[in-house]
Structure formats: structure tokens, C-alpha cells
């Protein structure tokens, strides 16, 4: 099996091609598979985090979009001439799939405040994580998406702007508003946490 761990994303992307139609050398099936596996290992976590936290409240829908993202990414490699930012490209695919999905079926999420109180009885990391992810559901879509891209995927504001088709200032503003809103939603619980820390 090929070891592509020291190859760049761009080199791996070129290796995904199966034909010489775009001028580059065609890769063998084994090379394509190895390159794809390496890219999946590198970026699967980020894309999955985006799908799970920014895309949908349904785990099944998120998994479907996650899978479809990588399949489309592989297919796109057969036609895209250049690739300068593979993770951003992956996240853009996931985002487009998400938008299509939301256009078809707009989900609603109702926060059960009792559930928040119940879950916040103990202030361990898991409980706070549950509160954060629940609070994420209360954010507006663009704010949640920007927040997830920044905090989960580690995207710069410029990358967020490119992925979400907005300006860098807008991207920064969305992240900050999301941070402030999450803090306000979790304020009662965070205050208790402060006392326990």
C-alpha cells in the first residue's frame, strides 16, 4: 500500500484522478484509493464535526451529508483542474449539501428548558458539552455555521468568509455574536460552573 502521509493535500488531490483528460497523469486504482484514504484521514474529523454540529439536528441526516460530501469530493477530483484548499473545498461541498437539504425539509428544534435543568445537575465536561451543543441549536443558522467553522474546524475568518460567501468582517461578526449568545444562553449554568471550578 502506498504511504502518502508526507504528501500535500494538493498532490493527493491530483492523485485522485482516473483519467488524463485534464492534462495530469492518470493514477492507478490503488494510488487513487490510497490518496483518498489519506485525505479522508486528514479531513474526515473536521467535515464530520461540521456536519454534526452545523448542519443538522438529526444524526442520520448529518451522516448522510458527511458520506455524500466525500463521495462528491472524489467525483469532483475528476473534473476540477486545481485545488488550493482541500478542507475548505470539502466544507463547501458539505455546506451546499446542507443548504439543499434544508431547502427540501426545514427542521425545527424545540428546546426543552426542563431538559437543560435536568442535564445540568452535574457540571462535568460532558454535561457542559451537552449544554453547548444544545445552545448551538438555538443560534441562527449563519451564526451557528460560523461558530462551528471557527471553533470546531479551526477555519480562519477569511476561510469562513470564502466558505459561506460573505465578507471577512461578516464572518468575524457572526462568530462573535454566536459566542456572545451561547454565553448568554448558558449564563446560569456557567455561573454555577464558575463556583465549582
Amino acid at each position: 500500500m502506498f504511504n502518502y502521509s508526507n504528501r500535500s493535500d494538493e498532490e493527493l488531490f491530483l492523485l485522485l484522478r482516473s483519467s488524463t483528460a485534464l492534462g495530469s497523469q492518470a493514477s492507478s486504482s490503488a494510488e487513487r484509493e490510497a490518496a483518498f484514504r489519506e485525505l479522508y484521514a486528514r479531513h474526515g474529523k473536521r467535515v464530520h464535526a461540521y456536519c454534526v454540529r452545523a448542519v443538522s439536528s438529526s444524526a442520520q441526516e448529518a451522516e448522510d451529508i458527511f458520506q455524500e460530501t466525500f463521495v462528491r469530493f472524489f467525483n469532483a477530483a475528476q473534473t476540477e483542474r486545481t485545488m488550493t484548499n482541500v478542507p475548505a473545498f470539502l466544507l463547501r461541498i458539505a455546506r451546499n449539501l446542507c443548504l439543499n437539504h434544508k431547502r427540501d425539509s426545514r427542521p425545527t428544534y424545540v428546546l426543552n428548558d426542563d431538559d437543560l435543568h435536568h442535564k445540568a445537575q452535574e457540571y462535568g465536561t460532558t454535561e457542559l458539552l451537552h449544554l453547548i451543543t444544545t445552545a448551538l441549536e438555538l443560534l441562527e443558522d449563519d451564526q451557528r455555521e460560523a461558530f462551528v467553522l471557527r471553533k470546531y474546524d479551526g477555519c480562519s475568518f477569511q476561510e469562513i468568509a470564502e466558505i459561506t460567501n460573505t465578507t471577512e468582517n461578516n464572518a468575524r461578526s457572526r462568530v462573535h455574536r454566536a459566542q456572545a449568545k451561547i454565553r448568554s444562553i448558558l449564563a446560569p449554568y456557567l455561573a454555577d460552573i464558575d463556583q465549582h471550578l
Binding site: Y40, K45, H48, A49, V52, E63, L128, L186, I193, D194
Partner: peptide, 28 residues
């Protein structure tokens, strides 16, 4: 302090950062 705590907690979101093996298998 709270924002640091939130950021640190997000990094423990193993569910988000771990694609299920079944998804990987399905993709491949």
C-alpha cells in the same frame, strides 16, 4: 474564563470529531 472553558469543552466533543466507522466504510 467562561469562553476558555467553552473552547476547551468543544475540543472534547468526541462525537463530532469521530466519524463512525460505518460512515467511512459506506464511503469507501
Amino acid at each position: 474564563k467562561e469562553q476558555l472553558h467553552i473552547n476547551a469543552t468543544i475540543q472534547t466533543d468526541e462525537y463530532a470529531f469521530t466519524p463512525p466507522a460505518a460512515s467511512g466504510e459506506a464511503i469507501f
